[in-house]
Simulated scan of single mutants.
Amino acid sequence: MTGSLMTSESNIPIGLEPRTHWAGIDGVLLRFALTAKPEAMAATQLLAADLEAKTPAGVVEIAPGLVSVLLRFDPGKTRREVLATEMSARAQHIIQGQLDTPPPARRWTIPAAFGDADGPQLAEVAQAVGCSPDAAIRQICEADLRVLVIGFAPGQPYIGLLPEAWDLPRQSELTPTVPAGAIVVAVRQLVMFGASSATGWRQVGRSAFRSFRPERDTPMPLRAGDAIRFAPVPASEIEALEQAADGLGGARLKVLR
């Protein structure tokens, strides 16, 4: 995820303009762009990693979005203006450097079934991408994917980025419901639903992984920045993995650093 469009006067990618905004009574939001540009996503991940490594005094939460980072702070220990100034300085330093996503600290390998009843729109998506369904599955499973952000529902990951050919629009109408574990795709991203849901994205697969279980020691196991690899398995294996009490659906976690 590397920037390619540059301004004529600097090495800063076009459209990256870090700006801070107040967020409630105890938050500061720094936004790199108004749209989900790959360069802005990379800058966001770099800033979030930098803030995690060197957390400013008084900060109680760091929450990265697709193109923004939110800091929540203790007003008794710091001031909003101080954090805004520091975030702006760090962001400017980041966008003047190489916008490569930081290496992941963790990697998940998640079994998934693709096509047929588990991915009823796989053929449609493959045609739009310009390849066969089997090639589409390979591209998903071989892509260097990361959890870009957790959002919409507790623990639910937005995962990307897929190759540029996968920059597919959302559907013009909602699919009324897809099952828990559905893997859906649009705009170079994948979402894994933790529960059944309506969606405007196209379903290409399904896993037994549940991104939120309140009874687990770690209710939401995924983190922004986690690497994701999908391992294709038969539909019958997904059905068996759904019986696992932990709700992880056979997913394996490897700590990389």
Rank of each mutant, 00 (worst) to 15 (best):
P176G: 07
L51H: 12
P133K: 06
E124M: 02
R170S: 04
A117P: 14
P13L: 06
V191H: 03
M220H: 08
V233A: 01
L256D: 13
L71S: 09
D217S: 10
L47G: 08
T101R: 14
A195N: 07
R80T: 12
P179Y: 01
E242C: 12
P111N: 08
R79I: 09
F114A: 00
S172P: 15
R223E: 14
P56R: 03
G155D: 04
G155A: 02
T199E: 05
E86N: 13
S197Y: 07
A49I: 00
R188L: 09
V60C: 07
T218F: 02
F152V: 09
V60D: 09
E52D: 13
G151T: 05
P103F: 10
A105P: 09
A240D: 15
T55K: 09
M41G: 11
V59I: 07
L190R: 00
K77N: 13
P179V: 06
I110M: 08
G249V: 06
E173A: 11
A153Q: 14
I228R: 06
S68R: 08
L51P: 15
D118K: 01
F152K: 00
G194C: 07
A195P: 07
L222T: 06
R107P: 02
W166M: 00
P133R: 03
A42G: 03
E81S: 14
E164K: 10
G58M: 02
V60M: 07
A40S: 12
I14C: 11
L253K: 08
